[in-house]
Structures are given as structure tokens and as C-alpha cells.
Amino acid sequence: MNRALTFLQSRAARLALAGAAIFAGATPAFAADETTRVLASRLGEVLPDLQLSDGITSATVGSAYRLLEDFNVVKLPVFVLLIFFVIFFFVLNRRVRKGGEVELRRLPGINAIEEAIGRATEMGRPVLFIPGINDIDDIQTLAGINILAHVAYIAAEYDTPVIVATRRSVVLTICEEVVKAASLAAGRPENYIPNNMRYLSDEQFAFTAGVNGIMLRERPASCIYQGCFYSESLILAETGFVSGAIQVAGTANVSQLPFFVAACDYTLIGEEFYAASAYLSKEPPVLASVKAADWLKLVIMPVMLIGVVAITISASLPAGSEWSLHLEEFVRLLKEIL
């Protein structure tokens, strides 16, 4: 008993207890205000032989309760996915640091970005880059800016100017920093031209009209769209086509992808777009994160299949039979954990 008490008092044990209770408590879908009650009862089920003989132990368990009360159990699936991803990332990153290599398959769209810059150099014309039209609060914009860093670096190496058009002021200032830094890193600080960093108002179609003007009057040889785009996608891509530019697009907006696919030379689809900066940077930790995403998919797909098989068996068994209900419960658990 004494040993059990000291065990409980250690912080690690408290967290483990909380974790066990969360998993046990996740089975029924409960409302937020019921959380405490359900968890309290579930805790007894998980650790039935736990004896709360004196004040210290109940206080310990009480603190575990409080931890649980603060934790939003409805968000459990996201938490589990996040933990999986972080673990995978650290494992892979360590492996990479020890000299392991992360090899990725070829993506045509990535080569196309490099080719597009090369073509602009040959023609002596600028490259136009648009990091999407959303503000910095969208992670797609961050992904676009990461890609811009590499585009600006390659362009600076080739001595080709980059025009960046943005719809948001903060994105503009960040892009300025990025292009300045990339030009400096490539050894050509003069390749950063402040006047090529354009803000064209926050209104969606005013921005689009302004970009149309840039495309037709400054004649960029290549247009690279990487970020979050909405209905202006097709206006941009069609105008770019008429101006004769090579166009490489990338976005995670499913509703706009068809238009980019139809009107651009290359399109990075969804996750490809997020992985693009890893491909371009070739830095081990960044590559490790792409590989970790692959591993996460390797977890998700079997879980999904197990769920499908279980619910199918459950549906084929006579309604209300014991196994049918068990399997149904199992699938519900699966859905709530992942």
C-alpha cells in the first residue's frame, strides 16, 4: 500500500492516471458538463483496487480529476493524431541526424518551379510570385512564403528579378524580409528590388485586376502561384496563359484546384503543395517532417480499414446480437480516439 501511494504521488503517475481515465472515458459520447461525473465513475472501473485510505491519496486523485476537467475530451482524436505526428517526427529526425537519409519520390511540379525560373532568366524577364490571397493566419500562406524563400534564392542565383504581389500588408512585409534574406544568402543582395514588392489592396478582385495589369504590362516569363486561392484562380491563370507565361500553381483549396489544373502548366495538389518547401530546401529536419506525415497516413489508413471491416461485420450479424453490439461499440471507440 505504501508503495502504491508513493507511486501515485509521482507526477508521471498522475499523468498516466489522467491518460487512462481519458481513454476509458472516451467510450461514450458525453457532453462537456458531464465530464467530471463520468470520469469519476470510469476511474473506479479502470483502477478498481485503488484504495483511498487517507487524505494524501484522494488529493492526488483529485488533482488528476482537475487535470481531466480542464481537458477538452471532445478534441481527443486531434490530440492523438498530433501526438503521433510529433513522435514520428522526433524518431525520424533523430535517425536523420545519425546519418540516415530521407529519400522522396520525384514531383514534376517541383522541377517545374526550377524550370520556370530558368526560363525567365533565358528570356530576361521577371518571375511573378503570389503567396495566395489569404492573410498570415492561414497556414497555406505560410507554406507559400516558405516556397517563396527558395524561389527567391534560385532567382537571385540566376540574377532574375522576382515580383511578389500580395493582397495583405503583413504578407507583404514578410515577403520583403524573405526575398531580401534569400538574395543576400545567394550572394546578390542587389537582386532584392523594393519596388517589385507590391501590395494591391485587400479587396479580392481589385487585387486580381492589379495582377492582371502586372502580367500584361511587365510581362513576367513565369507565374508561380503558391498559397490559398479562391475564385480569382482562373482569372489569374487565364491572363497568365494569354501573356504567354509558364505557370506553376499550388494550393490546398479543393474547389480551386480544377481551374489551376486546367489552365496552368503544373499544379501541386493539396499535400504536395505543403511538401514543396521540403523538396526545395532538402534540409534534413524538413524532409523528416514530410516523412512523418507519410507515417501518419500509414496509421490512418489501417485504422480506417479496420473500422470499415468491423462495421461491416457488425451490420451483417443479426441486429441486436451481442457481437454486433460489441463491434459497433468498438467502431464508436475508434472514431472517438482517432
Binding site: 505526428f85 497556414i139 505560410l142 499535400e271 518547401s277 529536419p285 524538413v286 506525415a293 501518419l296
Partner: peptide
């Protein structure tokens, strides 16, 4: 998934 990866990298 790509968004989680990018967001955490940032």
C-alpha cells in the same frame, strides 16, 4: 496532414 506538418515546422 500537410498543414499540421507545415504549421509545426513554423
Amino acid at each position: 496532414i500537410g498543414m499540421i506538418a507545415t504549421g509545426l515546422r513554423v
